[in-house]
Amino acid sequence: MVDNPNRKKRSYSNMTKTDADARLGFRIGELIEHAVPAAKMLSKIADENAVKETKEKVYRNIVDYLEVEGYPSESRSDFKEANISDLVYATIIPIISDFKRQTRCALRFQREDKEIVSVDSETGGTEAFVLMDLISVAKDKFVFVVEAKRSSVGEAMKQLLLAMKDARDIDNGGTVYGFTTTGDIWQMVSYNGEAFEVTEQFFCSFSAHARREGTMAEGFFYSY
């Protein structure tokens, strides 16, 4: 398809919630109302026994991060989106690394602004974290995207859903996964081209006691 140079692309971040609802074809609030437990979504794509070692690596990375950077909190004026991005990186790198070793998939993780533009060039935006499957020399396939925000969970979800829709349309097949996070609050989303599914919010958090004792805290990496 030839892009129209005179067409002005609407940025995810600049779209209103009403415009986003219209673009997606449903009300984002209604999707959130039908959120499912994280364990339900993860059970479709992960084997608990197979990922135990990876979970421990992720746990250690997060503990080390929190010891150095401190706990992410909206009340901390010095905690910026860049800090959250570092936490996201520490969280997902062991997962991607172990998955690549086990499957030998040609995945590329991009930790910089990756532009996603819809197939009709109507919408687009940049994502700080994008995982691509290099299926051929001329073709990349989106696997998942992450939208990190310092405090606005609703804004993060709006931008993530729009990015996932455009990414899946570009792929023209398969399922795209995504996460929103403020550092401690996370939500997981999947989109198969027909319907979105979102998990309930869960906390990837560690109490001071858990960090001191070196025990696994209640949360995403423990309870699923």
Rank of each mutant, 00 (worst) to 15 (best):
V2F: 00
D3T: 06
P5T: 07
R10W: 06
S11P: 01
Y12E: 07
T16I: 00
K17F: 15
K17P: 07
D19Y: 04
A20K: 13
D21G: 15
A22K: 15
F26T: 10
R27D: 03
R27G: 02
V36I: 12
P37I: 02
P37Q: 03
A38M: 08
A39W: 09
K40Q: 08
K44H: 15
K44P: 11
K44I: 10
I45D: 04
V51W: 01
K52T: 09
K57Q: 06
R60G: 09
R60S: 10
R60A: 14
R60N: 08
I62G: 02
I62L: 07
Y65M: 06
E69Y: 09
G70D: 09
G70P: 13
D78V: 11
F79E: 07
A82W: 05
N83M: 03
I84T: 14
T91Y: 00
I92D: 00
P94L: 02
K100I: 10
Q102N: 13
Q102C: 13
L107F: 12
L107A: 07
F109K: 08
Q110S: 11
D113Y: 06
K114H: 14
E115F: 07
V117T: 03
D120N: 12
S121V: 01
S121E: 11
T123M: 10
T123Y: 13
A128M: 13
F129I: 04
V130F: 08
V130N: 02
L131F: 15
L131T: 11
L134T: 08
V137I: 00
V137M: 11
A138F: 13
A138E: 11
K139A: 02
K139G: 02
D140Q: 14
K141R: 08
K141Y: 02
V143M: 07
V143T: 01
F144L: 10
F144T: 00
V145G: 00
V145N: 08
V145D: 06
V153H: 05
E155S: 14
M157P: 04
M157Y: 04
L161N: 03
A163M: 05
D166C: 03
R168T: 14
D171C: 03
D171A: 04
N172H: 13
G173C: 03
G174P: 05
T175Q: 02
V176R: 07
V176I: 14
G178N: 14
T180C: 05
T181N: 04
W186N: 01
Q187I: 11
S190Q: 04
S190V: 01
E194D: 13
A195Q: 05
A195H: 13
E197H: 15
E197W: 08
Q201C: 14
F202M: 08
F203D: 10
F206M: 06
R211L: 01
R212Q: 12
F220K: 03
Y222Q: 15
Y222S: 14
Y222N: 12
